[in-house]
């Protein structure tokens, strides 16, 4: 036997090549898993900052929030009284994150100093009310129409001698009634969803000074409430 058998000359997997292959495969697997991990972490729909910002903003404009009278309607005096303690009471997350609340560019409260961070803006109405009084005049037949819708009004009746005011009607509803005559100041509740016309039913002359109606004239202005959160 001089010549080698063909079986001995077959291409064989060499050990160094196997080692290199294993190392390469391991590196690639590691890289692949790292890439997948990053991709999944990046796809997290609600990262904490954004979640906290949205929740704090939601809480501030909710109907039972610390600033609001109704949903999305803020009360001016409550807005003025808002501070850091109120913010942390409303949104406990504010003590862990740096949160700033500002309304129309003016900062209301802050906990910490956010650098950059995530912002959520909400469109709100800021309502401020002012007490106004009206008196019925003779041309309107002893009636007075409130120019703005209001949930309540204060009626003051001070009739001159010889005059009796026995009822006050709001649209078709009797809100005050006393057969022997009304005299004094009364709070009446009205329907805020309709325009109210108050009518005094009286016997005898009634001059404008003898009956007055006080009501809250509310003025709502649009503003933007911005909540900034930095983790």
């Amino acid at each position: 036997m001089t010549a080698k058998k063909p079986a001995d000359r077959r291409g064989q997997t060499s050990l160094p090549a196997l080692g290199v292959a294993l190392v390469l495969l391991t590196i690639v697997t590691g890289l692949g898993v790292a890439m997948a991990d990053t991709a999944i972490a990046g796809a997290d729909r609600t990262p904490n900052e954004r979640r906290v910002a949205a929740a704090v903003a939601d809480r501030l404009v909710a109907a039972d929030g610390p600033l609001t009278v109704r949903e999305n309607v803020l009360n001016r005096s409550r807005v003025d009284a808002f501070d850091r303690a109120a913010l942390e009471r409303t949104a406990p997350a504010a003590s862990e994150y740096a949160v700033t609340v500002s309304l129309g560019g003016t900062e209301l409260a802050r906990s910490g100093t956010p650098r950059g961070g995530t912002r959520i803006s909400r469109v709100v109405l800021v309502e401020s009310s002012e007490r106004r009084t009206l008196a019925p005049d003779r041309s309107s037949g002893g009636a007075v129409t409130l120019p703005r819708r209001s949930a309540n009004a204060t009626v003051t009746v001070d009739p001159p001698p010889g005059t009796t005011v026995w009822a006050v009607r709001a649209n078709d509803r009797t809100v005050l009634y006393n057969r022997s005559g009304l005299n004094g100041t009364f709070d009446v509740s009205l329907n805020p969803y309709e325009t109210t016309r108050l009518r005094f039913q009286h016997a005898g002359p009634l001059s404008p000074g003898n009956a007055t109606v006080g009501y809250d004239a509310t003025r709502a202005t649009k503003a933007t409430l911005v909540v900034t959160v930095d983790a």
Binding site: T13, S14, A17, L24, L25, V28, G32, M35, A36
Partner: peptide, 23 residues
């Protein structure tokens, strides 16, 4: 061609394909 190099090429392509799908 050493068989293991062929295998590593095939394996790398496979794993990179899956990772690219994630990315």
């Amino acid at each position: 061609l050493p068989l293991s190099l062929v295998e590593v090429a095939v394996g790398t392509t496979l794993i990179l394909g899956v990772a690219l799908g994630f990315a």
